[in-house]
Design a protein around this nucleic acid. Structure first.
Lengths: 175, 175
DNA sequence: GTCCGCCGTTCCGTTTACGGAACGACACGG
DNA sequence: CCGTGTCGTTCCGTAAACGGAACGGCGGAC
């Protein structure tokens, strides 16, 4: 079994014990079998979403609280750029993806064109970022904002020695 | 089945289609059956953690990205404005707080002045937002960006009937 | 000591999520 | 026209997650 299941089990057990609940009591409250909860906490089962939800809801925590955080699965976009998806937001007009982004100093990172109409919005936390369409990049320092249409190839680069940290919002309009 | 499963399925399908992947291709890449992925996207199955992880890992997103977000625990800032803290980022120069924000139509929401040097950065997802210093608010629609220095009283208001959804970045410079 | 209650684990029959193999629909080439 | 390929869905046998019941262990009452 994956080590993920064990980690989830440990977190659930910790949350349960913080509340002074016995395994039997939590199983009864959550409406699941004791065997299920036992196996879940020990990482010997591969729980379904429904089971996990029943337990976390009764513990009063969001599902995300017992799952591995966004830090362990960086969405690597390339050698110099690492990005982690924080949230997806779907709307009638468009879908948005909000990332935390890190750009290491060194060679610029190229990114191919996306579909037409896709725009990128970056707010720089620290460092100096030079990014945008390859033929017309823009520069932004801490607290500043960049925006471009990413249906052409574009690049990201850290200016100077300091790595850049920023938030990146991708907007995909619905066709 | 729970409506949670349907929501998860929608998000996975959206992420897959953004990447231009077919259902068959993603199933093959993730090492799961097409039937499994089909049922998962349509919300007719109750996936196990292992299945979900295989899919999200191949999509390059954390598990949390496809599950119901932290929306269940809103950090209420006032009657018309609800904000959820997504991440705090501390840096040598400043501390940043990244929120997802929702502004309901109706009376503007006032916010008192913060410390000097604090700036607010808003990217609008949907709706039309009118915000900024009370004597000089700015208006922004979907995909647009607002920025102001919040060491004076400022306000947020939704223009029209539609609620506004946006990301809000607060920057607190270190003195 | 025995009895009782609850603990967490293990056993076991039922339910169901799983992947492989069909299926019909559609697009393209010969 | 008929292959050939890929699309997403449906069928179906198997593997496993499920809940209920039984288990051994432990602490308190008597």
């Amino acid at each position: 079994m994956d080590h993920t299941a064990e980690e989830v089990g440990r977190r659930i057990r910790a949350l349960r014990e913080e509340r002074g609940l016995s395994l039997s009591a939590l199983a009864r409250l959550a409406g699941i079998g004791k065997a299920t909860l036992s196996g879940l906490e020990n990482g010997t089962r591969n729980p379904t979403l429904e089971t996990l939800y029943a337990v976390t809801a009764r513990l009063g925590v969001p599902l995300t609280a017992v799952l591995a955080g966004p830090a362990d699965t960086p969405t690597v976009r390339g050698a110099a750029v690492g990005a982690t998806l924080l949230e997806v937001f779907t709307d009638t007009d468009a879908t948005y993806e909000l990332y935390r982004m890190r750009v290491s100093p060194g060679a610029p990172q190229l990114s191919p064109a996306h579909h037409t109409g896709v725009t990128e919005h970056v707010t720089v936390f620290s460092g100096v970022l030079r990014a945008g369409p390859v033929d017309a990049p823009i520069t932004a320092g801490p607290g500043e904002y960049l925006r471009w249409t990413s249906d052409v190839p574009h690049s990201y680069a850290a200016v100077g020695d300091e790595p850049v940290r920023a938030s990146l919002l991708l907007r995909y309009p619905h066709r």
